[in-house]
Design a protein around this nucleic acid. Structure first.
Lengths: 226, 226
DNA sequence: TAGGTAACCTAATGTTATTAGGTAAAATCA
DNA sequence: TGATTTTACCTAATAACATTAGGTTACCTA
């Protein structure tokens, strides 16, 4: 037990060291020596835990993304109305990004350059994460809250594209401002493309029977930790 | 003259070889030997033309992006109405991407991972390219074609985000389908967020005095070359 | 035709990733 | 308990690259 525990501990130490260094200096400029030093280990020992540098890169965000996937259902539970769900989705996701910028940086900046990305566990999990949006758009359309002829896939492309854009910019600018800046207005603007009744200045006059912004968060935390 | 010509020719050969190999195998897996072999050159000779592998990566899309920048004004010239201009912008840009997928791949997939990206000529040119959108949104708002309270920056975030999203997907899926697929419907959906009058099923009832889709292209070419 | 120089080469050198081949201590077992 | 296997490491190669040193060849110019 102590042995396995120690082994798990070392594995985590390696992952955390690599995560930190990759996010700080980039994948290319981080060497195996750097990582193993940071983890108080010899280079050779590292190879007992990972097949190599690339394997390490691909493994790091695995845990993070699969935790996101576990959490999302919980987060949307009990929220009524497509707009409210979309709002919660956006706020929740950006919050998670803010809380784990190192993982986010690896997924958003480094992973896509990898030839094997498409065959990765992470990729398929991110796809699953985004597929929730399809259901929300479809439900909203069927309930009459969104446009009757709305194509869920196109709506998702706009939503995800916009979301990824602001995330990528935030990461490239080294998290130097709040990722929630202007998010309210951005969301209202975007939702205008999907809503059955055009949401003009003010938010839509409440979807029939919807709980008013139930469960949606409204805060703009300053610092990004971890 | 013949000397300079030969030198220019070699430089181009190197760039084209690198472009091809980077796009095919990724930056990391492409070696200097690979590139110089492809260009019929020794490794040492390559260093007469470029400072190293990274310099090569950063130089490749320079020409392409600055050509885009030169072209955009020309393309938008004579088109009236914000929606028409946005449409033209989108179709034009995707066409250029389709025509130069190797350059696009390097800009979209590899460059962002580079720590020096933000200080690059390419980055500042891409920013300029996107800044045209701000003007279009502002004009459209002032002309009453777009929402009177539209924030051009937020609109740009949605537009660019969506655009980048479909481009990135197309590149990651190895250009295996037409990048123009469903673009009409996507555009109509997105413009609904910006338009003063909600564009529902049919396109907006023509901005006052606008030339009907003047100068906008309407084709879905199949293959991607070069 | 001598001397320079442009464009390229072969053969180092240096930096990293990755492997070989141990060792010491803990865990397992007779 | 003592022998033996296994775990979790290590030091010291090896090998794959990027990058540099130090030419060579052929053309160009005076």
């Amino acid at each position: 037990m102590a042995g396995k525990n120690g082994k798990e501990n070392t594995r985590e130490r390696i992952i955390n060291s690599a995560k930190k260094l990759f996010a700080e200096q980039g994948y290319q400029k981080t060497t195996i020596v750097d990582i193993s030093r940071q983890a108080n280990l010899s280079e050779a020992a590292l190879y007992e835990y990972f097949q190599g540098k690339e394997d390490l890169l691909l493994t790091i965000p695995d845990l993070w993304v699969s935790e996101l996937l576990k959490d999302i259902d919980e987060q949307l539970f009990g929220i009524k109305g497509a707009a409210n769900k979309l709002r919660k989705y956006l706020w929740w996701y950006l919050r998670r990004i803010e809380q784990a910028p190192l993982d986010a940086k690896i997924v958003y900046l480094f992973l896509k350059t990898n030839a094997n990305f498409m065959t990765t566990e992470v990729y398929s999990n991110v796809k699953k994460l985004y597929s929730h949006l399809l259901e929300i758009f479809e439900e909203g359309r069927n309930a009459g809250e969104l446009k009757p002829d709305l194509d869920p896939r196109l709506a998702r492309d706009i939503f995800v594209g916009t979301m990824d854009h602001i995330i990528t910019r935030w990461l490239l600018k080294d998290m130097s401002y709040s990722i929630f800046e202007n998010l309210d207005r951005l969301f209202e603007l975007m939702i205008g493309a999907f809503a059955a009744r055009p949401s003009r200045e003010s938010p839509p006059p409440e979807a029939p029977g919807a709980v008013s912004m139930a469960g949606t968060v409204e805060m703009h935390p300053a610092g990004a930790s971890s």
